[in-house]
């Protein structure tokens, strides 16, 4: 992590809505510079992004409202450039520059 300035990153935007923004300092949109590869040198995918968000942006002790057993909590929808992540390979989807990833909860009061 000492050479994080030199490590290549991918610029993306990450949105939280449907109540999830409450777990992320009540901010809906973040510009994120995501490390281009994970610790094993594999290209950054959604799984890695979720980990990264928990480590760097999560401002709430209730992380389990976002992640459960290291997977996204059932009931939270993930949209990759507005498309359901189920159409894009879910956690294995490799993040591209300028991607927009939206996490929207269906779990909060309607």
């Amino acid at each position: 992590m000492t050479n994080s300035l030199e490590a290549p990153t991918i610029p993306i935007t990450v949105d939280f809505s449907g109540g999830l923004e409450m777990l992320f300092d009540n901010q809906r949109r973040y510009a994120v510079s995501l490390p281009a590869t994970d610790a094993n040198g594999k290209p950054a995918n959604i799984s890695f992004l979720i980990d990264h968000l928990c480590r760097t942006l999560m401002k709430d002790p209730r992380a389990d409202l976002f992640v459960l057993d290291r997977h996204i909590r059932p009931g939270i929808l993930v949209l990759i450039n507005d498309a359901d992540w189920e159409l894009e390979g879910e956690e294995a989807y490799e993040i591209q520059p300028r991607d927009n990833i939206l996490f929207v909860s269906t779990l909060h009061g309607g």
Partner: peptide, 21 residues
């Protein structure tokens, strides 16, 4: 489905509010 309700609101850009009691 609750999922489709949320997606409908999202794609139609409806103005809604989420909270917890």
């Amino acid at each position: 489905y609750e999922k489709e309700i949320v997606l409908y609101a999202h794609h139609k850009k409806l103005d809604y509010f989420s909270t917890e009691c």
